[in-house]
């Protein structure tokens, strides 16, 4: 019952053989499968994390681009408004100037015309005066003749004046 013999050696060999067999047929495959599953799950997590990071990065980029575009549009509107105002001012100024110069020209022409008329009038009055003086000196120095002469003078002067205006 209690004796050590060669069976101890056979048992050792048995255990070593059993170890190799079980390692190859049971523990190896099962461990392999478990490792592969763990690897797969880790890969899945890693991929999910990478996708998440990617999405975050893209979102940030879009946000940056969007805010840039907003600023740019504000800038463009501002510029357009400024240039429109400048154009408006320029046009109004130009129109004002043009109108001013036109009024000025009109005034000028009116004045010159008036001066010319005055000049004509003066010369006619001078002529009439000279003619009436000549008539007075020339003869009929009576009352009736004088009054007729005045009337004629005045009439001619009035006509001349009327014509001049």
């Amino acid at each position: 019952m209690i004796s050590i013999d060669l069976n101890l050696v056979w048992t050792i060999i048995n255990i070593i053989v059993l170890y190799l067999l079980l390692k190859h047929f049971l523990i190896g495959p099962v461990t392999n499968i478990m490792d592969r599953r763990r690897q797969m799950i880790e890969d899945g997590f890693k991929n999910a994390q990478a996708a998440q990071d990617d999405a975050d990065r893209l979102k940030q980029e879009y946000e940056a681009a969007l805010s840039g575009a907003k600023q740019e549009s504000v800038q463009i509107v501002e510029d357009a408004r400024k240039s429109a105002r400048a154009e408006y001012d320029r046009i109004v100024n130009e129109a004002g100037q043009k109108a001013g110069s036109m009024i000025e020209a009109a005034k000028e022409s009116v004045r010159t015309e008036r001066e010319q008329t005055m000049k004509e009038l003066k010369s006619q009055i001078a002529g009439l005066a000279a003619a009436s003086a000549a008539r007075i000196i020339g003869g009929h120095a009576d009352e009736k003749g004088n009054s007729a002469l005045y009337d004629q003078f005045l009439k001619e002067a009035g006509e001349g004046n009327g014509n001049a205006d």
């Binding site: 060669l6 069976n7 056979w10 048992t11 048995n14 059993l18 079980l22 047929f25």
Partner: peptide, 24 residues
């Protein structure tokens, strides 16, 4: 001499190996 325990161990080994082959 091969004792009973060694023979039973052989049987156990065979059963275990066959079982692992079937299970895996």
């Amino acid at each position: 001499g091969i004792s009973e325990s060694v023979v039973v161990t052989w049987i156990i080994m065979a059963v275990l190996v066959v079982a692992s082959l079937l299970l895996t």
